[in-house]
Simulated assay, not measured.
Amino acid sequence: MKYLIDFMALMVLYVFVFYGKWKNRGRDVLFVNTLMYVYLSFVLYFTLMPVITSLPFILDHPYVAMNLVPFIDVSAKRGDFIRQIVLNVIMTLPFGFLFPLTQNKSHQFGRTVFYVFLMSLGIEILQPLINGVRSSDITDIITNVTGGMIGYAFYVIFKPVTIRFLDHLRH
């Protein structure tokens, strides 16, 4: 039920704020931006949700500062560090691919890396605030940015096919 409230809020936001704007700019813009919105909603689901029902309790637990030692779990062989690294890279691959498609500018690599960094930093700062069980780690930021960079490489490789597909949607 907690997650349903967050998803309902995201649905209302999409329908009443974004859908009309994106639809008026064309089917291609609507498709890409909706895909990005759905992707970001799933990122929120896996990293921060439930958010709305957690808000009244954010001060009920201590805020644990971010671990600033990169890859400490790897060097200490703690937990399922390989799985965590792989999942963090995979989580941001779509961002690296989709973000440039939502932009109207060229030379998107720097912007893509910057925004995937901001998204990851925001998640890492908010995780222990929203939920006292979750922790924050610099390794996650590094691996998220790496995933965004790999996703951008896929964007560059598949750009001709992607642009052709979006042109087809436009007409």
Rank of each mutant, 00 (worst) to 15 (best):
Y37C: 08
F97H: 00
Y3T: 10
K21T: 02
V29L: 00
K159Y: 13
V43H: 04
G147N: 04
F154V: 10
L101C: 01
L35S: 15
V116G: 00
R164D: 12
G110E: 01
T47G: 09
V51D: 08
N131D: 15
V17M: 01
V145F: 00
P94E: 00
V12P: 08
V43S: 00
A153G: 12
L68E: 10
L98Y: 06
G148S: 06
M1R: 07
V12K: 01
I52N: 00
G79R: 01
V51I: 15
I58C: 07
S54M: 02
K21G: 10
Y37Q: 00
Y45D: 12
V51M: 03
S135T: 15
D6Q: 06
M91D: 07
L87W: 02
I123Y: 03
L68D: 03
V86C: 03
I157V: 14
R170M: 05
A76R: 13
F7G: 01
F18H: 04
V51Q: 06
A76W: 07
P62G: 05
P62H: 03
T139G: 07
V69N: 11
I125K: 02
G151N: 03
L48D: 09
P50T: 07
V17E: 01
L35T: 15
D60W: 03
A76D: 14
M149K: 00
H171E: 13
I82L: 13
L126M: 14
G20Q: 08
V86E: 06
F154C: 13
V133T: 14
G79H: 05
V116N: 03
L59F: 12
D73Q: 04
D140G: 06
I150L: 15
G148N: 06
G96L: 00
E124K: 11
N67V: 13
M119G: 15
S106R: 15
I85N: 06
R83W: 08
V32G: 10
A65T: 08
N104H: 14
K77H: 11
K2G: 13
G110M: 09
M49Y: 04
I163F: 12
T102P: 08
R164H: 07
Y45P: 02
F31T: 01
Y155D: 08
L35E: 09
L169T: 04
L129T: 11
I5G: 02
F71G: 11
Y152M: 05
N33Q: 08
F158Q: 00
